[in-house]
Amino acid sequence: MGLLVRLRPIAFIGTLLVLWQVAVSLNPVHILPSPWGVMRGIVDLLHHGLLFKYVVASLFRVSWGFSLAAILAIPLGLAIGWYQRANMALHPLVQVFRPISPLAWIPLAILWFGVGDAASIFLIFLGSFFPLLLTAINAVRNIPAVYISAGRNFGLRPVDLIFRVLYPSVVPQLLIGLRITLGVAWLVVVAAEMIAVDSGLGFLIVDARNAGNRYDLVVAGMMIIGLIGLLLDTGMRSLENMKSFRWAYSED
């Protein structure tokens, strides 16, 4: 019984794959790849050493852009959230910049950094910076006032107040923000690679299509993008489950 229940999702995936295979073999145009074709495509990429190279290229860009954004945006956001006047001054500006799709920056990125890694890292940086900044600002503003009062009451110096009260109370919200933002960064890297560079998983998709309609490679690329995105998300989630952070999610 328990085993049967556990097998159901696998059976569902299996059914979808069979349907896909049948639909493709019934379709005379043969431009869409079958699941089997996609598997062969992945093997093909592995053989040429391209898969590993492209995955590393994409991850390299995401880690740089995302880390730079986190290093800059989180301390800045915490400071802005803490000082009410800074928040009043900068919040409207942040609100205007944030909804500009990072992809709309592509012309400027190319103008400033040329075609290449720096431009796409810049785009990922932009795509991550504003969401993280807003998360950090809101996280500070949502700290219950009693925690600050209690911390001050015990005679903490400002530095200690930051490390012993401010930081632990914002971490859970920051982690959620980091997870959502990492998803956005992963979305942006694919787009950036389709337009602005010549390596990476996004490039793989565009290149496979343009150079000979290799749709098996296109879908293989998509699957790998999905899989890596899922791994990143799961990794971030496991941070949230650490015991010393879990307090924030267990109550209400």
Binding site: R8, L201, I205, R209
Partner: peptide, 22 residues
């Protein structure tokens, strides 16, 4: 949900941009 969730989890992180050729 238990049945559909794994499929959703794989499809969800695929950037919509990656779907352009399809």
């Amino acid at each position: 949900n238990q049945v559909v969730n794994p499929v959703m989890q794989i499809l969800r992180p695929i950037s919509p941009i990656a779907w352009i050729p399809v």
